[in-house]
Amino acid sequence: MSSWDWQVFCKDTIDGEVVPGCFGGAGDVTYLDWLLSAWGWTLSVSALALVVALALGSLMGILRTTPHRGLVLLGNVWTELFRNIPLLVQIFLWYHVVPTLIPPLRGVPSFILVVIGLGLFTSARISEQVRAGIQSLAGGQRMAGLAMGFTLPQTYRHVLLPMAYRIIIPPLTSESMNIIKNSSVAFAVSISELTLFALQAQEETSRGIEVYLAVTGLYFVSAFALNRAMLFVENRVRVPGMIGGGGH
């Protein structure tokens, strides 16, 4: 392993021959092709899991701040359940256990199961953040909304949530970046994403360092791009006159 060999990415995945131009043509797949498709899988799993996590995490976080004991309990149980089991174990539960116990789920592709698993795991963390965001508004805003004649759902919709979400954008950003990192456990159920690519390509080519560097680099790039995107959102929704806001 004394010198670099980046040509490894130009090799055909079947016969190991270097393909000119590095991209395989009809029927041929180079390691570069495979790497890019693995990146695509990582991004797809992450993006879909983020949608699931945001939807369910928000719902559960909101439930935990309502005046109804039953709903608070539901939100609490949900959060504790999905937060206290390791992600990998949860993925195995979705992959090996759930389809056995619930036969209609047997045909569901493992990609979907991973999205659900990663989504629910992350929803517990997002539920914590949403709850904290709403509670940081103190009771005054809720009372002001209700005093204007808003119903409780209207008070959440127009008064509490618009501010709560603005407040929790920074922790939501790091949670979204965590999703990209955590999507790496999908390798354990044979989703052809970056980490599985790293494992297999390393074994086939014996160029572990080059392969790992490329994969690590793509994780970096993905997280960084997401971080910039969230900063853009944060600036767009900033409220004039608030801390860090536009001022007079």
Binding site: A144, L146, M148, P162
Partner: peptide, 17 residues
């Protein structure tokens, strides 16, 4: 009922956004 009863709070509670 609340829609017909005006209320003013100690900390104003305008909607900041």
């Amino acid at each position: 009922l609340r829609a017909r009863v005006g209320m003013v709070f100690q900390h104003f509670e305008l909607f900041p956004h």
